[in-house]
Simulated scan of single mutants.
Amino acid sequence: MRIYADKLTEHLSRQLQNVYLLFGNEPLLLQESREAIQHIAKEQGFDEKHRFSIDNSLDWNQVADCCQALSLFSSRQIIELELPESGVNAAIAKELLALSSLLHSDILLILVGSKLTKAQENAKWFKALSAQGDWVSCLTPDIQRLPQFVQARCRKLGLKPDPEALQMLAQWHEGNLFALAQSLEKLVLLYPDGQLTLVRLEEALSRHNHFTTFHWIDALLIGKANRAQRILRQLEAEGVETVILLRSIQKEFSLLLRMHQQSKLMKMAQVFEKNRIWQSKRPFYNAALQRLSVAKIHRLLILLTQIELTAKTQYEHSPWPQLIQLSLEVCKPEHEIPFSTAFHN
């Protein structure tokens, strides 16, 4: 069964499975999920824990021995396996499939990995292991789901944010859930009554949101101009190299042009599959393709080249104002905003 990390505690209170597959890109959720499983397992007699990092030097016989070297006097054991960042290759897949046949009621397996791919989800090893337990999704909540995520954590701690405070908590901690957890613990101590308002938050907290280039790209694709500008301002304040941003958006423009061309020959679902676009990202690209014509993308590429020339040759001029203008023009439908002549010297 697939469950979300924020629902794991509820599931654990009903039943402890023999296998937990923790996959995602959010360190806080991965850590909390591990701790929650281990806490319940210890209460049920799983007193020994063996942790292995999977790499070329791992002796899989040691893992198998943990499953087989049990007697009437042995305690129940937790085996924790951490997958490499590069994912599961054929050799690892073979060992995991073999391991699935060795598991029994006195072994609890926790497998930890980064974001799960569609190929992994359909692999024999994954199906064999997931059939014996739960797959826990530990992905970072997106901006639409983040307020709901923050609300749930507040509820657990007895905090009662009003709508404005909830929105501010989400905005200030986007991309930094460790800081969110610390901030909520601080608020519990500062305000025993649990009531959270904008005034109280501003008095108690500073901003902890951490944006990346990927956040900016997503905002551009979906056409959220204000959000794109806010992200850019923070990236500038953090000293992010403009060349990184330019290369990233150039790659997206090239992808959009290719998808426009492919859409003439095949259905959009096939276009997404061909370009390996994640299901969760398809609404972003749909929005961009509907808003940005081929002609407009070509004009945006020209502006992009001009910004790159500024960044690499005109050191006395900051390219950030041009990047902000480019963001605005990417986000607006073509008929709403004329292309600025501010780029032309």
Rank of each mutant, 00 (worst) to 15 (best):
K94D: 11
V112A: 03
I79P: 06
S101L: 14
L169Q: 03
T140K: 09
D142C: 04
A131T: 15
L146W: 02
L83R: 03
G133L: 11
W125F: 12
L97I: 08
H104N: 08
S86P: 09
S71C: 07
F126N: 08
S100D: 13
C138M: 01
A131F: 13
E174I: 00
A170C: 12
C154Y: 04
L108M: 12
L116R: 02
E121S: 15
D142Y: 00
L109Q: 05
L83I: 06
S100Y: 06
L111F: 07
G113D: 00
P147Y: 01
V136F: 07
A128W: 05
L70G: 07
R145Y: 05
S74K: 04
T117N: 07
V112P: 02
L108G: 08
L81I: 04
P147H: 04
L157S: 10
L139V: 09
L166W: 02
L99Q: 05
D162Q: 14
L97A: 13
M168G: 07
A131R: 11
L177I: 07
W125T: 08
V112D: 06
S86N: 13
I107Y: 06
L177R: 04
D162K: 10
F178N: 14
V136R: 07
L108D: 07
G158M: 05
G158P: 01
E121L: 07
L99H: 03
L166Q: 10
L116E: 03
V150P: 00
E80F: 05
S86T: 15
K124C: 11
D134A: 15
Q148F: 06
C138K: 00
A165C: 11
S105L: 14
N122T: 14
Q120Y: 00
L146Q: 00
D106W: 06
L97G: 15
N122S: 13
L111P: 01
L103K: 13
K156R: 15
L72N: 02
E121C: 12
F126P: 00
A90D: 13
P163T: 08
V136W: 01
T140W: 04
A131H: 14
P161W: 00
S101K: 10
A93G: 15
V150Q: 05
P163M: 09
Q148R: 12
G175R: 05
I78T: 01
D106G: 03
L129K: 02
F73I: 09
C138G: 04
L96P: 12
L146P: 04
S137A: 14
